[in-house]
Amino acid sequence: MAKVHVTTTVNGQPVEYLCAPEQSLLDVLRETLKLTGTKEGCATGDCGACSVTVDGTLVCACLVLGVEANGRSIGTIEGVADGENLHPIQQKFLEHAALQCGICTPGLIVATKSLLESNPSPSEEEIRYYLAGNLCRCTGYDKIVRAVQDAAATMRGEAA
């Protein structure tokens, strides 16, 4: 089947690509656009390693078609830091040792950013439920939850 021409925005930059109608956004990001920060853990929407935002909504890129990005704004892990400055969530993940292998980390950071943008003061339970779609097999989530709590406090302007 003929490929489809897609015009979209990725991390604020205009982007064009051709993709097969059945190709996932994850596949387009990783294989076509070479944005490999978004990870594939399952391709069935169960692990959250491919978390991105589409017009600000948190989604699994493996469950979105590449063609669906047309006219939308995509946010990936590569767009989280502000140039040379890490986002507070990234900084807190480092300070709290909230990653071990690091494969789930991009997805968790994108999901956390989405959480804190909609809920600047989440409870521990709200954090755990919001991030329940992001599997981490290394940490047991303890340090991730603490990093998110600390990042939220920092983003609210509270001293750590």
Binding site: G41, L131, A132, G140, I144
Partner: peptide, 16 residues
């Protein structure tokens, strides 16, 4: 698959 082979998610666990 991770849907039916269910590893612990954040909401399954307390602080450790």
């Amino acid at each position: 698959g991770f849907l039916d082979y269910r590893v612990p998610v954040a909401s399954d666990l307390p602080m450790i």
